[in-house]
C-alpha cells in the first residue's frame, strides 16, 4: 500500500506531457514502468507532488532504423528491447543487457527510458550504452538537446536531465556486421542487481575495442582497450586490460555485496572475460 498522497496526470501525447512538466517543475515526477519509482514511493524515499504517467503515450514506444542509427523510444519495455529484431541485429549487446534485468514481471513493465533516467549505478543498460556510444535525446517544452551517454550521469542517481526535461529517445549507432559483443555480470543470484558489470565490444578485424563497466563508480565508466589487441589476446594483453579496468574502478564503493577492493578486483576479472569473449566473437566473424 502506498500511504503517500499525490496528484496524478496521464497525458496521451508528448506535447501535453511536456506542458505538464513545464507547468509543475520540480513538483512533477515522471512515471514510466514504475519498477523503481513505486518501491521508492512506498518506502517514502521520494515524495512526489504530482506523478505524470507516460504509459499512455504510444508515440514513445518504438524501435526504428534511421540510416546508420537505431532509435528507441523511452517507453520501450525491457522485454521488447530484449526481443526486438532490429536491436538483435544491430545492437545485440543492448538486447543482452535487457534480457538480464530482474525477472519477467520487471521486464514486462520496466522501460529503457526509466532505467537510464533512474541511473542506478548497478543498473544494466548504462555500461552497454557507453560501449555502444549511445546518445540520449532530452526534450522540454522549450526545445531539445542531445547528450552523449558518457556525459549523462553526474553522480549517484544524478543525471544531466534538468527540471522540465524528459528523456524521450535513445539513439545508437548500428554495429558493423561481424562486431563481437559480450555482456558479463557478477551476480549472487540471477535476477538480482549486479555487483559488477562489464559490457564489451570488439570491432571487426580488432580495429578497436572498449568495455563499459557498471557498479564500480557512481556512474558507468568506459575503458578503451584498443591499444592492447595488436598481438592477439595473449596473457600480457589480458593483464593490461585487467589493470586498466582496475584503475578505472578507483571510485568503487563498498556495500553488503562486496567491499570496494573486491569490486575493483572483479572489474579486472570481468573486463578481461568480456573483452576476451567479444574479441573471440569478432575473430569468428
Amino acid at each position: 500500500m502506498i500511504s503517500q498522497e499525490f496528484d496524478f496526470e496521464a497525458p496521451s501525447a508528448l506535447p501535453e506531457a511536456l506542458a505538464l512538466l513545464a507547468r509543475h517543475g520540480d513538483d512533477a515526477t515522471l512515471l514510466s514502468g514504475g519498477m523503481s519509482l513505486m518501491p521508492m514511493t512506498t518506502l517514502g524515499l521520494v515524495q512526489p507532488g504530482m506523478i505524470i504517467s507516460l504509459n499512455h503515450i504510444a508515440e514513445l514506444d518504438y524501435v526504428r532504423e534511421d540510416g546508420n542509427e537505431l532509435r528507441i523510444g523511452a517507453l520501450t519495455r525491457h522485454a521488447d528491447v530484449a526481443a526486438d529484431p532490429l536491436i538483435g541485429a544491430h545492437a545485440a549487446l543492448l538486447a543482452e543487457a535487457a534480457s538480464l534485468i530482474g525477472d519477467v514481471q520487471v521486464r514486462n513493465r520496466g522501460t529503457i527510458g526509466g532505467s537510464i533516467a533512474h541511473a542506478d549505478p548497478a543498473a544494466n543498460y548504462l555500461p552497454a550504452m557507453l560501449a555502444l556510444g549511445a546518445r540520449l535525446r532530452l526534450q522540454s517544452e522549450a526545445g531539445e538537446r542531445s547528450v552523449e551517454a558518457k556525459d549523462f550521469v553526474k553522480g549517484i542517481m544524478t543525471t544531466a536531465i534538468e527540471t522540465g526535461e524528459m528523456l524521450t529517445e535513445i539513439a545508437i549507432p548500428k554495429l558493423a556486421a561481424g562486431t563481437g559483443c559480450s555482456y558479463q555480470r557478477l551476480v549472487r543470484v540471477e535476477g538480482n542487481f549486479a555487483i559488477v558489470i562489464a559490457a564489451a565490444i570488439t570491432e571487426p578485424g580488432r580495429k578497436a575495442a572498449r568495455v563499459g563497466l557498471g557498479n564500480v563508480a557512481p556512474g558507468p565508466v568506459l575503458v578503451d582497450v584498443s591499444g592492447h589487441l595488436g598481438n592477439g589476446l595473449d596473457d600480457a594483453a589480458l593483464a593490461a586490460i585487467g589493470d586498466a579496468a582496475f584503475d578505472a574502478a578507483a571510485e568503487a564503493a563498498s556495500d553488503l555485496a562486496g567491499d570496494a577492493n573486491y569490486r575493483r578486483e572483479m572489474a579486472r576479472v570481468f573486463a578481461r572475460r568480456a573483452v576476451q569473449s567479444a574479441t573471440d566473437a569478432a575473430d569468428a566473424g
Partner: peptide, 18 residues
C-alpha cells in the same frame, strides 16, 4: 496478467492502467 503479460500489480498505479 496485464494484456496477457505477467506484471507485479503492487507496482502499478491503477490510474495508469486505464
Amino acid at each position: 496478467l496485464i494484456d496477457g503479460k505477467p506484471v507485479t500489480s503492487c507496482l502499478v498505479l491503477t490510474a495508469s492502467a486505464e
